[in-house]
Design a protein around this nucleic acid. Sequence first.
DNA 1: TTTTAAAGTTAGTCAAGGCTAAATTGCTAT
DNA 2: ATAGCAATTTAGCCTTGACTAACTTTAAAA
Lengths: 142, 142
Amino acid sequence: MGDDTRLNPRHNKAEVFARLRDAHAREVTEDYVEMIGDLIAEEGEARSVALAERFGVTAATVNNTIKRLERDGYVTSRPYRSIFLTEKGETLAKKCRERHQIVYNYLVSIGVEPEVAEFDAEGIEHHVSEETLRVFELRLLS
Amino acid sequence: MGDDTRLNPRHNKAEVFARLRDAHAREVTEDYVEMIGDLIAEEGEARSVALAERFGVTAATVNNTIKRLERDGYVTSRPYRSIFLTEKGETLAKKCRERHQIVYNYLVSIGVEPEVAEFDAEGIEHHVSEETLRVFELRLLS
DNA sequence: TTTTAAAGTTAGTCAAGGCTAAATTGCTAT
DNA sequence: ATAGCAATTTAGCCTTGACTAACTTTAAAA
Ligand SMILES: [Mn+2]
Ligand SMILES: [Mn+2]
Ligand SMILES: [Mn+2]
Ligand SMILES: [Mn+2]
């Protein structure tokens, strides 16, 4: 005791922003593993050139990002070869794809145009907590 | 004609991500002008030290950001004095505060815990299009 | 009026995530 | 077999947004 938690039931604002910055740091990783998984499913393999085309960035940018993902244990890659997800990457990709789908479906279900939902879901997905996701799911089923 | 828009009714994925990166670039600006507005309303003035405390960053970081906001025409400031919103800053702050409130209220209205909604809204707000915001508003009123 | 603490600034560092330009590698068609 | 194109990598640059450490200014206490 002695602190003013009692007087101020609202958590510190700083906590909210710290968490926001955390979410930020994970966004690109999440979009990449999801996209790599999509490419493997759709085209049999994930090549740099396809990632660059889908994200609308240069090949050099993809290369940088893949190095980071590799460093962090999400993918493996060999020079001039295609990219593979590790177990860790696969797990994250699955979680992200499901979450993405729930957010997208939920937006459409409340009346957002599919095209608009596609834009918004790509950003919103990274900022939806497990709790909120469960609420979306629940409302979707009813 | 001549392009394959007809064959591929879905817009390019790259567009979605370009827009996401755009939203990203605006996030910090939006949170700052909103917070500066809050501080002026609540405490009469916006001091660096208060911004640093609320965002949970150092004074040096606030200083950098304020310089950028000033460069971009959202605020004015003089050394060792408090920070003011320009017309442009005020306009953006108002828009962001309203949007934030709608997102927060909507989340709570569908059953998300207020504490959780506070976290999620801080990130989601920056990725909600006008269209989706209107849907949230509409559902809120009914 | 002087001292001191708080607030603000400056300088220098770092990682992420973009870019361009140039070099390298792999693949395919001749 | 090899020439040439497409894919990939490398090098070097930039901005944002974070940090620490050291310095300066302001304002309050003594
Ligand atoms: Mn996604
Ligand atoms: Mn996304
Ligand atoms: Mn906000
Ligand atoms: Mn925010």
